[in-house]
């Protein structure tokens, strides 16, 4: 069976992955698979391809199937292209009773897409997510690494206008 070419993982990503590998016992490189998938996903503009998952398997000496299992089990890995900015909106109970329905409505109207879709210019993807653990700041959303809390329509406009 031919090995995937792990040169798909660029130098910066490899250095980053190596730092994670170093946290675990020497014979437990597999522990770094979640970090590795996140890192190559970021490298690839926010989503994973089969080739990238295979490259991770190769890099960490794992069976491909075990990498696929992890990549499909956790919700933060994407398996099709996403926009430059992935907007994750919480609609769970605390956000719901604080108006996440209106937040979703405003985002869908403003971007002219539905939840789960990406704008034509590939700038924004809307994603409904489960509780993100910022319930006292409800309603909230996450874009990239940042949380935005106590949202209303006006605040969303300001946030989106401020994104490059």
């Amino acid at each position: 069976m031919p090995q995937a070419n792990n040169e798909l993982i660029n130098t910066a990503s490899r250095e980053d992955i190596d730092q994670w590998v170093a946290k675990y016992p020497a014979d437990k490189k597999q522990s770094a698979v979640m970090a590795a998938l996140r890192i190559v996903q970021d490298q690839n503009g926010g989503w994973l391809t089969t080739e990238l998952m295979d490259a991770v398997a190769d890099y960490l000496d794992m069976d491909k199937i075990h990498v696929y299992e992890v990549a499909t089990f956790y919700s933060m890995y994407e398996h099709k292209p996403v926009g430059k900015h992935k907007i994750c909106v919480c609609t769970n109970i605390s956000c719901m009773v604080c108006g996440s329905g209106e937040i979703v409505g405003h985002l869908e109207d403003k971007l002219d897409i539905k939840m789960g879709e990406t704008t034509e210019d590939n700038r924004f993807t809307l994603k409904e997510v489960e509780c993100l653990g910022a319930c006292s700041g409800a309603p909230m959303m996450q874009i990239g690494e940042n949380y935005y809390e106590n949202l209303d329509a006006e605040k969303i406009d300001t946030i989106l206008d401020g994104l490059k």
Binding site: K23, M34, L37, R38, V70, Y74, M76, Y77, V129, E130
Partner: peptide
């Protein structure tokens, strides 16, 4: 001690 980051799973 070290940190480990999850991937989104309750």
């Amino acid at each position: 001690a070290h940190s480990h980051l999850g991937g989104g799973a309750y």
